[in-house]
Simulated assay, not measured.
Amino acid sequence: MLPVFMLVLVLAELTPEPRYLEDDSAEERVVGGQVARPNSWPWQISLQFKSGSNFYHTCGGSLIRRGWVMTAAHCVDRSRTWRVVLGDHNINTQEGREQYMSVSRVHIHPNWNSNNVAGGWDIALLRLSSDASINSYVQLAALPPTGQILPHNNPCYISGWGHTQTGGQLSAQLKQASLPIVDYKTCTSYGWWGSTVKNSMVCAGGGRDSGCHSEVRLVNGKWVVHGVTSFVSSSGCNANKKPTVFTRVSSYISWMNSVSITR
């Protein structure tokens, strides 16, 4: 692994290169944790791409309006035929609760640069071809207020499909894991992520459990989606002092509002 060179080499450290999380390169995963109760995260979606005559899961996402899904920019910055599956639990089985929606338009944040893993702006909105039907299995995610920052060790959960450990088996069932917040001061300190992490990101985990799609927090009896998984360490997705790094949703509320009013 090559070192990260800086103009000033005082206290320069060897930081493992960040790596995106997505299933079609066997990277998206919930390490540790447990299988979620079916449809207990009803805003969770499976983002899928078409290859041949079949669709394949690649990333997670959150239904934030009946016709809009929030996901990571790195998941959709290639030209593909996409669809979103809502109300799913086992992505290998049709259980009768799913809603299948094609994607009519992809809105990637204009500052996103796919050649810069840690540059930030890793967020996108997907306009669905039709509005979701809200029911017991499919509901809208709540978003945080603009600029909200969670304190150190604040309990959160992640949820998603994927590998259950580095190089391990694939879980077809939706999983969840508890991840504590690692505050910005700690996450950007020497020996942790350092300057790789920006203040528009949020870190969580770095221990036994690690990250997949969404990071949620319970506030006044209501779950709030605070993060979209962006990258992990190339040393492993649960590497010590290299917590999962999420796009901090509260940094992008105004941008999402501006996009969502264009139909």
Rank of each mutant, 00 (worst) to 15 (best):
P18W: 07
M256R: 07
Y20W: 10
G236I: 11
C212G: 13
H152N: 13
T229M: 15
P144Y: 04
N199A: 01
K175A: 14
T164F: 02
S214F: 13
S133H: 12
F55M: 13
Y252H: 01
I91N: 12
R263W: 03
I261E: 12
C237D: 12
S189G: 09
G205M: 02
R78K: 12
A132P: 03
M101V: 11
S189W: 00
R263I: 13
E13W: 00
S102Y: 06
S133K: 12
W112Y: 14
Q34G: 14
T146I: 11
D183Q: 10
R65W: 09
S260A: 05
V10I: 10
A26R: 14
T262D: 06
T229A: 15
S233G: 02
H89M: 08
S260K: 09
I64C: 12
L7M: 05
V225E: 04
G160H: 03
V182T: 02
L150T: 09
I123K: 03
Y184I: 15
G52P: 13
S251F: 07
F246R: 07
K241C: 05
F55V: 14
L140R: 01
G32P: 13
R37K: 09
D88C: 12
P243L: 07
L125H: 04
L21F: 11
Q139G: 00
H226I: 04
T188G: 07
V197D: 00
W255Y: 03
K185L: 13
S250G: 11
T186H: 12
Y157A: 09
A124W: 04
V76P: 05
V225P: 15
H107E: 14
V259P: 03
L128W: 04
Q173V: 07
S104K: 02
N135Y: 09
V10R: 13
G160P: 05
E27A: 08
C156D: 01
Y157H: 06
R19Q: 14
D122C: 00
S235K: 08
H213Q: 11
P144D: 04
G162E: 06
V245S: 10
I149R: 08
W193P: 05
N153F: 01
P42Y: 07
T166C: 09
F55H: 13
E95M: 14
L86E: 02
V182L: 08
W82E: 02
W112R: 10
L63Q: 05
A118N: 06
Y56L: 06
T164I: 11
V35I: 11
M201A: 10
D209F: 10
P38R: 00
V4W: 01
L140S: 08
R66Y: 02
P145A: 13
D77T: 12
V106D: 03
S189V: 15
Q94I: 12
R83H: 04
L126Y: 01
N153R: 11
V202F: 07
V225M: 02
Y184C: 09
W68P: 02
Q48C: 10
L2S: 15
I134H: 04
L14M: 00
S210G: 01
G194Q: 00
S251R: 06
G162L: 07
S189Q: 06
V245Y: 10
K50I: 11
R80H: 03
L128D: 10
S189L: 00
